[in-house]
Write a protein that binds this DNA or RNA. Sequence first.
DNA 1: GTCTATACGCCGATAGAC
DNA 2: GTCTATCGGCGTATAGAC
Lengths: 186, 186
Amino acid sequence: MAIKTTRDHIVEASDQLFYMQGFDHTSFTHIADSVKISRGNFYYHFKTKDEILDAVIEFRLKKTKNMLKQWENDNVDPEQRILDFIHILIRNRELIIRYGCPVGTLNAELIKLDHNSKQDAKKIFSLFRTWLKKQFTLLGHAKQADALAMYILSQSQGVATLASVFDDEKFIKQEVKRMTEWLQSL
Amino acid sequence: MAIKTTRDHIVEASDQLFYMQGFDHTSFTHIADSVKISRGNFYYHFKTKDEILDAVIEFRLKKTKNMLKQWENDNVDPEQRILDFIHILIRNRELIIRYGCPVGTLNAELIKLDHNSKQDAKKIFSLFRTWLKKQFTLLGHAKQADALAMYILSQSQGVATLASVFDDEKFIKQEVKRMTEWLQSL
DNA sequence: GTCTATACGCCGATAGAC
DNA sequence: GTCTATCGGCGTATAGAC
């Protein structure tokens, strides 16, 4: 891991703030306070706020790719890999209850803003979709692999949204259990 | 139906704009242009933007209550009533693909803004939850009625989110079919 | 009830010193 | 590379004429 540049700090702080407060609502002042640099210093690293958003999406894409690769390395069994995906809901339950799913909420916001970068944000979902499809294919469900991938993605989104609205950790655990049983019964 | 007052027009225009653009991103100028009144005239009807939000949530609560009552009047069979709920996804598919679920996206936004009215927005979800629970109880699933209500709500949220991100009408139809079959197999 | 004019702050963004 | 100072615009909100 290389030493973090100021640019890295800006991207990582923005990543967190965009998740916790939303992209539109997060101002340069918020980010500057978080990184502890002046507002003016931003524009040496990024010309516009949209450029920061693009860098954040790039950052998330990279993190997601690494996570998926890690899951493939950790397990040979595709069923176990899919379980790793499902269990993000458990591992990140505190943040999910507070702020929802980072992928779903960013996409939903950019869609409403009709923002140029919504197509890039969608790619984060596509990474999961393609990866899940691959695992279901390996499990012997080649024909319905994409439908199964969408099904699991959809379930996770629903669980994250309702767990957040109803502040309900038990709901997450119960639904993860149900999804696990569903997967094993396939 | 009484004649609509200016206040009614403001509430209904805000309802639409909050759905299509988000609450935070919608300005008084947007609403004023839509209603065709001056910005200054707002403050005769509402003291703050938050008061408009409260009126919009009140408006949505009332509309939702009427819709649920209508579904009860239209069908004696609770299974058919639940199908009415599931089929909102089909009926509103164009709007859902463009802007997501109005209930889920408003709640998600207010949660991120940590807005005072997030508790009121949650009540719209609670209306559906309680109503669905009642129908599942009538169907003879009293013990798991709330879990089944949450399951259906969660599914709908997931479908709305993914259909919007992937601009996918077929996904909605396919998932509605799956949910219908699931309901009939209960 | 509706309007125009305006206050005041925060927004993203720029210029230029160090 | 980082800073301070500042710009123009839009945000919510107010005052007061009609």
